[in-house]
Amino acid sequence: MNEYWCFLIPAILLAIFSDKIDEAAKADEKLKKVILVICAGVVLITLIRVVSDLFIPT
C-alpha cells in the first residue's frame, strides 16, 4: 500500500500548482484543465485502490 502514495502526493501537488504551471507554459487555461483532470483521475483511482486493499485482503 505504500507505493500508492508515490502517485497520490505528486497528483495533489500538481493540482495545487496547476495555476503556476499554466502561467509558465502560457497555455490560456487549457493546460490547467488538462492537469486538473489528470490529477483528479489519478487521485480517484489511487483512493479506490487503497480502500479496496483495506477491505479486501490479498
Rank of each mutant, 00 (worst) to 15 (best):
residue 1 M to H: 00
residue 2 N to A: 05
residue 2 N to P: 01
residue 3 E to L: 02
residue 3 E to N: 06
residue 4 Y to A: 00
residue 4 Y to V: 00
residue 4 Y to R: 00
residue 6 C to G: 09
residue 6 C to P: 00
residue 7 F to W: 13
residue 7 F to T: 06
residue 8 L to P: 07
residue 8 L to Y: 12
residue 9 I to G: 01
residue 9 I to D: 04
residue 9 I to K: 06
residue 9 I to V: 14
residue 10 P to L: 09
residue 10 P to S: 10
residue 11 A to W: 12
residue 13 L to T: 06
residue 14 L to Y: 10
residue 14 L to T: 03
residue 15 A to R: 07
residue 16 I to C: 08
residue 17 F to A: 03
residue 20 K to T: 11
residue 20 K to L: 11
residue 20 K to R: 14
residue 20 K to V: 10
residue 21 I to F: 14
residue 21 I to R: 05
residue 22 D to S: 15
residue 22 D to V: 02
residue 23 E to V: 03
residue 23 E to Q: 14
residue 23 E to S: 11
residue 24 A to F: 14
residue 25 A to T: 13
residue 26 K to C: 11
residue 26 K to S: 14
residue 26 K to W: 13
residue 26 K to L: 12
residue 27 A to I: 09
residue 28 D to K: 15
residue 31 L to M: 12
residue 32 K to G: 08
residue 33 K to Q: 11
residue 35 I to D: 09
residue 35 I to A: 13
residue 35 I to P: 04
residue 38 I to T: 12
residue 41 G to R: 11
residue 41 G to I: 07
residue 42 V to N: 04
residue 42 V to P: 00
residue 43 V to R: 05
residue 43 V to I: 15
residue 44 L to E: 03
residue 44 L to M: 11
residue 45 I to F: 06
residue 45 I to A: 12
residue 46 T to W: 05
residue 46 T to E: 04
residue 47 L to W: 02
residue 47 L to R: 04
residue 50 V to Y: 02
residue 51 V to G: 02
residue 51 V to E: 02
residue 51 V to N: 05
residue 51 V to S: 09
residue 51 V to R: 02
residue 52 S to F: 08
residue 54 L to I: 02
residue 54 L to K: 03
residue 55 F to T: 07
residue 55 F to E: 00
residue 56 I to G: 01
residue 56 I to C: 04
residue 57 P to H: 06
residue 57 P to Y: 01
residue 57 P to N: 10
residue 57 P to M: 05
residue 58 T to I: 05
residue 58 T to Y: 05
